[in-house]
Design a protein around this nucleic acid. Structure first.
Length: 431
DNA sequence: TCTGGGGTCCTAGGACCC
DNA sequence: TCTGGGGTCCTAGGACCC
């Protein structure tokens, strides 16, 4: 059915005959699983329900089942290393322990919290289950990672039907149906925001967490969105928020009231204009149901910082293994790539990247290793290394037109950037 | 107690081509 | 010999997200 114009003069007159005139053209949902990794673990270990549980760590923190059937769990205080928390239960959050926090720091705040290793295999399984359950009710889904999706509900049957005097009754009914379906498929709860666009829905799904439903229309923006801190807007990160604060802007309302010219002057034409639009809740982005990867990568942070000379053998071994894992990822997923990238993070967290575009795409571990090795020669290696990563971009599928060899550019490889003097001979001997 | 691993997108300068 | 503009590719870094 065609969307009717939202003409206020005719809205009330047609309300009885055509129930949907009060609703916007688009109804977009954002569905966010509640404390996803932790909740999946609670399905396995139900006796932990209500406790402070943190997901991080490695295999070694796997619970041990004793002969009498009871389980012994690792505690946060047992952890040593450089890992961060990926998820924590709401009880753990009450103790001040959040995702992204270093586990050693978290252990100071909540030493008795239970520590479980991450099990991506299991999370991917439940991810597929909940997405499939939603797809049966509403097939227009955009994947936003393992635990969240956008859903275009605009054409879902019944969504525009009022219930009693509630014009949003149909919207809420569909939201409840989706939540029930996810629950039946997984035993897990989620939170849903439904609004006219992705930007607002992302904010809305967070307003009543966990296990909530939040429906917002344009008229609700001043009362529900404007009081929030600018960090609640997806796309405003720590840097932008800090800069906004220096301008006296902390809430979305203050951002909405700011002169667009000021924002453009401070943040550039594109981002400045976007900030203004976002603060007014405007977002035309469609729900994208299919996308191709741009790059595939593997990286690892060492347990201790490694030195290019002293730890050469170990670095070389890790480097090769990363390339092999990456090649295997590419093969399994059916991609090859022309641009090979190297990433190094040094002690002090300074990060450097180098890349090299080949004449033809590859998915071969040795070719990747060679190209990444050439990149390595362009980096000064005086400081100890914390992280090593390898990336393949410029992806294509073997046999496709974009996969044709290109010989357009002279290979400027090593001459592109002269390396700091004194490091070159050293690098040649390394890795 | 320093900050994982997997990504995307944007900016900006220089090369290169027309 | 000097000037110049547009378009695309390559590279490096950074912000941001899950």
């Amino acid at each position: 059915m065609a969307a009717l114009p939202s003409d206020p003069l005719h809205a009330s007159a047609s309300a009885c005959a055509v129930p949907n005139t009060a609703l916007p053209e688009r109804l977009i949902a954002h569905l966010d699983m509640d404390a996803f990794y932790a909740s999946v673990e609670l399905l396995r270990y139900p006796e932990l329900k209500g406790q402070a549980v943190v997901i991080g760590g490695r295999r070694m923190h796997e619970p041990v089942t004793l002969p009498d059937g009871t389980r012994r769990y690792a505690r946060l205080r047992d952890y040593t290393g450089r890992g961060v928390i990926t998820t924590s239960t709401y009880a753990a959050r009450d103790l001040g322990v959040f995702s992204g926090m270093g586990m050693m720091k978290a252990a100071l705040r909540a030493p008795d919290a239970i520590l479980l290793p991450t099990d991506f295999e299991a999370y991917r399984h439940y991810s597929r289950l909940f997405k499939a359950a939603v797809a049966e009710l509403a097939p227009v889904i955009e994947d936003r990672g393992i635990d969240e999706i956008y859903i275009d509900l605009s054409e879902v049957p019944g969504i525009r039907e009022p219930v009693g005097h509630d014009p949003l009754g149909g919207v809420r009914a569909v939201a409840r149906e989706i939540k029930n379906s996810v629950w039946r498929a997984t035993g897990l709860s989620c939170s849903i925001g439904i609004t006219p666009n992705k930007l607002l829905s992302k904010i809305a799904s967070d307003l009543d967490k966990p296990d909530g439903i939040t429906v917002l229309l344009e008229a609700d923006i001043p009362s529900r969105i404007w009081p929030l801190h600018v960090r609640k807007v997806n796309g405003i990160g720590p840097k932008a928020a800090a800069k906004l604060q220096t301008l006296g802007i902390e809430t979305v309302a203050q951002l909405a009231a700011a002169e667009p010219a000021l924002l453009v002057a401070q943040f550039g034409k594109s981002f400045g204009a976007w900030l203004h639009e976002a603060a007014h809740g405007r977002d035309k982005r469609p729900v994208v149901t299919h996308s191709e990867p741009v790059s595939i990568s593997r990286e690892t942070t060492f347990e201790r910082d490694l030195h290019a000379v002293h730890d050469r053998a170990e670095l070389s071994h890790i480097f090769t293994r990363l390339c092999e894992q990456l090649a295997s990822d590419l093969t399994r997923k059916g991609y090859q790539g022309r641009t090979i990238g190297l990433k190094l993070r040094f002690e002090g967290f300074h990060t450097v990247t180098r890349d090299l575009t080949l004449d033809q795409p590859t998915q071969d571990a040795q070719a990747i290793r060679r190209a990444a090795g050439a990149c390595l020669k362009r980096v000064s290696l005086e400081k100890r290394i914390r992280l090593l990563g390898v990336r393949v971009g410029g992806l294509s599928r073997p046999g496709s037109p974009e996969a044709e060899p290109k010989r357009r550019r002279a290979n400027r490889g090593d001459s592109a950037k002269p390396q700091p003097s004194g490091t070159s001979p050293q690098n040649l001997a390394l890795f």
